[in-house]
Amino acid sequence: MYAQMIKSTGKGVKSLDEMEPDERAFQERINAGGKIEPKDWMPDGYRKTLIRQIGQHAHSEIVGQLPEGNWITRAPTLERKAILLAKVQDEAGHGLYLYCAAETLGVSRDQLTRDLLSGKMKYSSIFNYPTLTWADMGAVGWLVDGAAIMNQVPLQRTSYGPYARAMVRICKEESFHQRQGFDIMMKMANGTEAQRKMAQDALNRFWYPSLMMFGPSDENSVHSAQSMAWKIKMNSNDELRQKFVDQTVPQAEYLGLTVPDEHLKWNEDRGSYEFSEPDWDEFFDVLQGNGPCSVDRMEARNKAWDEGRWVREGLLAHAEKKRARKMAAE
């Protein structure tokens, strides 16, 4: 899940009877499974919450290029290098569609970028963890993209049209990413002793941060209740986390790897796994900017933006000169 702890109005969900006619019509349309399009009337809170959510998702795609970019120049074969490059390129593309979706809500990409770079807006906690071995490229695809898909597949049915449509395209690519991640894990887990050690180490380091991607339990959150009523959040965090664990544990077993949780146990009655919660103090530390790579990631983004300024200004100046010349000639 690339959007975490998204605040909505904080006021609790209104009943249909409490709503003004516009808002009531809007909510009834959502309840009936209809889509909201950019020019339709929408409550201010819906617009603002969506901007936060889509913006955070877009920022996650952009910052998410960095931990994988860390291994492009060290990829072990030409094919692996090409696959990884294609994956990171897809992520930049996802960032682009999502910024476009956010722009339909009346916020510019430049504004969102400024908010990311100033630290005002967040990106997913997961990208503040380091990628230390080649097996991490497998673990990121398998676990991180796997967790993202859990959330993004239902979002294809989200109420906001441009977001839902962006998600359809993104999901297709994400499931390819997850498969290639699992493929790397298979190679590593069935490889030499050193490769198996890297694979286990990657699972050890990425297991709990992946569980954190869903965010803490939101059963009593007014923000989540509102987002669910608006259908911009489709499932509770715990529900998605459980689904992720139930899907992933058999895959780890298939790989011959051990999930780093001594309390992990199949619950026959429930038909699901019991598992340990991640360390939520660590999660909140990461959100506060104290993740292992938080400072590095923000520095890298800021440096890229600052060093690219002359390029953006140069190309803009040229486009203006061209337009002026064309007008003078006409």
């Binding site: 120049t73 030409l78 094919e79 490059l85 294609a86 390129q89 890229a304 933006w305 300024r309």
Partner: peptide
């Protein structure tokens, strides 16, 4: 490919990755 994720604008990130991909494909 060393440019991954740090280009001046998002469109350039995509275009640079695309060029690198083509060149790696030709290399193979």
């Amino acid at each position: 490919s060393e440019w991954c994720g740090v280009a001046p604008v998002l469109e350039e990130d995509i275009a640079l990755a695309n060029t690198a991909l083509d060149l790696i494909g030709q290399t193979t």
